[in-house]
């Protein structure tokens, strides 16, 4: 069972919680442990805006187990406004609507159903910004 693996990532996935450097203001996502030479308190939890733009994208037509209901679906690299680049699914859109540089916003969606006796996995996806 992967329950613990999914649970550990809840802050990252549900609300895009990353980290901000208390001194430099640098923002990183996802959160990482501090380096050995660093004061562990120097990186504070920080919730990113969820806003960004499409850096690149593709469309998956042959998908892995657990994603059949979604197929075909777009997958994108998104450059977040705060700087980090993340890979995530796009949702609520058609391939023809998408373009590089397009503004997108984060939504929390169901990522995967792990089966009748498993957990539902939720996390971030992106969609074209609502007008």
């Amino acid at each position: 069972m992967d329950i613990a693996k999914h649970w550990r990532q809840r802050a990252t996935r549900y609300r895009m919680q990353g980290q901000r450097h208390r001194e430099t203001g640098e923002i990183r996502f996802p959160a990482r442990p501090s380096a050995l030479c660093e004061d562990p308190a120097v990186w504070e939890p920080y919730i990113l805006s969820g806003r960004g733009e499409i850096y690149s994208f593709t469309v998956l037509r042959q998908s892995a187990d657990g994603f059949v209901d979604l197929t075909p679906y777009p997958l994108a690299m998104v450059r977040l406004n705060e700087g980090p680049l993340v890979v995530a699914q796009l949702t609520d859109c058609e391939e023809a609507e998408l373009s590089i540089g397009q503004p997108v916003e984060m939504v929390t969606r169901r990522l995967k159903d792990t089966g009748e006796d498993g957990v539902l996995v939720y996390g971030y996806k992106f969609r074209p910004v609502l007008s």
Partner: peptide, 13 residues
């Protein structure tokens, strides 16, 4: 609802 939506996700938005 889209294939990745349920009562939890629509409540969040």
């Amino acid at each position: 609802p889209g294939p990745d939506e349920d009562t939890v996700t629509i409540s969040i938005e």
